[in-house]
Design a protein around this nucleic acid. Sequence first.
DNA 1: GTAAACAAGTTTATATTATAAACCAAATTA
DNA 2: TAATTTGGTTTATAATATAAACTTGTTTAC
Lengths: 96, 96
Amino acid sequence: MFPKLDPLLHSELRLAVMSVLAGVEEADFTYLKKQTGATSGNLSVQIDKLTAAGYITVEKGFKGKMPRTACRITPAGQEAFSNYVDALKEYLSAGK
Amino acid sequence: MFPKLDPLLHSELRLAVMSVLAGVEEADFTYLKKQTGATSGNLSVQIDKLTAAGYITVEKGFKGKMPRTACRITPAGQEAFSNYVDALKEYLSAGK
DNA sequence: GTAAACAAGTTTATATTATAAACCAAATTA
DNA sequence: TAATTTGGTTTATAATATAAACTTGTTTAC
């Protein structure tokens, strides 16, 4: 019937982050912030959750002297995202 | 960019309820409960929220001697649902 | 050279939400 | 008539999302 939606992805900001990362090799914190329009704090928290879930990886380094946080989606993240999309379609089909 | 998702619809159970109601003339509490697999308490609360938002209407009556709560989606609800679907597609497109 | 402003985040606090557990009233069944 | 079931509602709790406040370091202006 209605499949369970992955609660990690069923969140506006986390979904937006995953959506960006799904379409790009890697994205840094600032870029994600710009693309999603999120506040830094919110983004930081949600990135942590996605990392803890193994959906993304975070690589901290420096760009010149400034800190830089680069994020990438993992294969597990790709799959979870894809599953989420499929599951969601079950909910949306009635409204086509 | 990423459109804001209607928080009233971005909820697993409320979305399931709306999805059912979008495809049917009317549905009563028991039917919604069966279709969604929700607990009564949760369903009751979420129906209230959808009603307060004007997305559905609730008509209380009796079927024989037993109480019956019939729900229908409103035009506003239809539109909100449709907008939500459109908005969500922006998030999902990357994962096609 | 030092004070002010900015960059890139993190931590913490708050407010909202989702959810289930407990409860209630009436009807049916044993 | 006692127990169970139906059809819910109310209340309590636990999780979540989010923003506000803070930190560390860098660049710019004076």
